[in-house]
Nucleic acid binder design. Structure first.
Lengths: 111, 111
DNA sequence: TAAATTTACTACGTTAGGCGGAGTAGTAAT
DNA sequence: ATTACTACTCCGCCTAACGTAGTAAATTTA
């Protein structure tokens, strides 16, 4: 498992990336993260929902209620154009971060 | 400049990596970081010294006073065997983190 | 049919790392 | 005498993440 101090700062990008193609809701997104990383990272519920709050506050996502006739009513999230822009910005920052950190990290298994 | 939320979690590793080969002190380490990253990242003084505190507390470094006859007396830091072990652990975690985050990031400039 | 589990959140309070701002202490250059 | 550079130190704030607990509705299991 990857420590959360390392993931801090990436949760927003991860969520936005999953919302790029379709709107979704908390539980589903959390499951997708666990699956895509093959269990290496699973976001905590509180972390997840506080990330939604932050993204909403910044206008990177909007929320709406689902209309399912069964189960508890879900809150869905949709990415906004601002959210997309922010996501692509952060992707570039990630490329930069990789080169910066690699300067200080020894890769034991060779290049 | 890379945001500090992204660098959070890496400051300790960066400092330890610079201490691998020889003991050093705050100002010098801060300068080395700025130089090695070509200005892309420069650690704040408060962040730097609180990182030292943390590393000392965890036994990853030890401190001693320099014996310079001029200028303000410097506090030097030396990495411990535990610090080395921790550093190499974190390097492996970094390799993992790279693959995990890359799952969610679109690289605009191709592979 | 009652109890347990799963889905889908919400609320509350704490911790840790990073940061801004200010201050201290010494030397060196103008 | 003032400014600048080196080398810290102190204080208090902010934010992301977390632990714990609780709510609510449906679905599964006993």
């Amino acid at each position: 498992m990857i420590s959360s101090d390392i993931m801090r700062g990436y949760n927003d990008i991860i969520l936005l990336s999953l919302l790029l193609n379709q709107a979704s809701y908390g539980y589903e997104l959390s499951r997708q993260i666990r699956e895509r990383t093959e269990g290496l990272y699973s976001i905590k519920e509180t972390t997840l929902y506080s990330a939604f709050e932050r993204l909403l506050r910044n206008g990177y996502i909007v929320s709406f209620f689902g209309e399912e006739s069964f189960g508890k009513r879900r809150t869905y999230y949709r990415i906004t154009p601002e959210g997309r822009a922010y996501y692509f910005e952060k992707c570039e920052e990630w490329e930069l971060t990789k080169t910066v950190i690699s300067q200080f990290v020894i890769n034991q298994r060779g290049k």
